[in-house]
Simulated scan of single mutants.
Amino acid sequence: MLRSASALPFDDIRALVGEMPGPDETAALAIRAREAQLTKPAGSLGRMEELAEWLGAWQGRSMPSVNRPLVAIFAGNHGVAARGVSAFPPAVTQQMVENFAAGGAAINQICIAHDLGLKVFDLALDIPTGDITVEAALDEAGCAATMAFGMEATAGGIDLLILGEMGIGNTTIAAAVSAGLFGGTGSDWVGPGTGLDDAGIRHKAAVIDEALAHHAGHLGDPLEVLRRLGGRELAAIAGAVLAARMSRIPVILDGYVATAAAAVLYKLDPSTLDHCQFGHLSAEPAHGKLLAAMGKTPLLDLGMRLGEGTGAALAAGVVKAAALIHTGMATFAQAGVAGKS
């Protein structure tokens, strides 16, 4: 399956995309057949029915279940943060990683509420990526190695992967990557991030425009967009999404930053994200625009923009419920209830 646990050159990443497995159609058919017999009007559970089929088809289970879910948070620091694009200093990334370890963050509480495992991956926080306004964030070897590291999130027999991130300055990176992939200027893709005022947002947009101008002519390849304008947490998320696909593990992605990472794979091949759900619509303004560009509909809309996997983890509770509804409900025959005449 995966060619190496070490750095993968971009050609090998493209080869993996070409080798992706599809869903288990036999499982999908069995789920649809059982769905039609459950004690409810057809279609009355709406998207919950679709989620049960999606989950089982990618797991290869006619009776979908979530037994070993994992929230993976990738944390990275960015050279562009020195340009004043965030309301918080870069040191907060490390401090929040320590808060996750101590159990004091919002994501810890959501994981407890929904019985989700949690792992946090520190991506060389003491070595920020390059300032994208004057240089590439990563070289090809470093970007590929980080993608390979992200692939390790699928180890251990998990059956649902929930992906989030932490990194001061990374909504700037998400906006730059979105513009590099789908066009537009900084102002088309920026938002307040951790709490910028209007002047801060204008400055953030100008910084992104500097980066787009510096890398102009090199953004036709999505992987080049990732390495030039992205960051380690985005590269790791992209690697995790691809590895999950190769292992038939369903994925739930968090907000703007995680979606920008996944968009790199989408631009390589739109079908790369068929095993993914988008957990929520972030209040970061451009997230909805990015989802629309890929034709994706989020599961939740709670006005959140915290990051750290929180929206995706809440959505995991919905996915777990969809599986339990499908497998635990009685059929009309089992319950002795008259079906539709």
Rank of each mutant, 00 (worst) to 15 (best):
G239A: 05
A321H: 02
S282C: 13
V257N: 08
V251D: 04
A33Q: 14
D188F: 14
N108S: 14
P41L: 13
P128N: 01
L45T: 07
T146R: 08
A144Y: 02
A30F: 01
M147P: 02
I252L: 12
E135C: 05
A292L: 02
A205C: 07
K204T: 08
I252D: 01
L291A: 07
Q94F: 11
A87W: 12
D197G: 08
L8Y: 02
E308I: 15
K267P: 03
A240Q: 06
A82G: 14
C111Y: 03
L253E: 00
A145F: 06
T93C: 13
A36M: 04
I252R: 10
E308V: 13
A87I: 05
H78F: 10
G195I: 15
L16A: 07
L160K: 12
D254C: 08
L291W: 10
V92H: 05
R3T: 14
D122H: 09
T171E: 03
L55H: 04
L196D: 13
P128F: 07
A335L: 14
R3G: 09
I110E: 08
R232I: 11
I158G: 00
A7T: 08
F182S: 13
H214Q: 13
L302S: 00
M151C: 15
L118A: 00
E210I: 07
G22W: 03
P128D: 01
A243E: 10
T310W: 04
T129I: 08
A333M: 02
A30D: 03
G157I: 14
A235H: 03
G184H: 02
L45A: 06
L196R: 11
S65W: 10
E50T: 10
I110K: 06
Q109L: 15
L302Y: 05
G217Y: 14
T172H: 13
M294W: 03
V66K: 10
W58C: 06
A315K: 06
V207F: 15
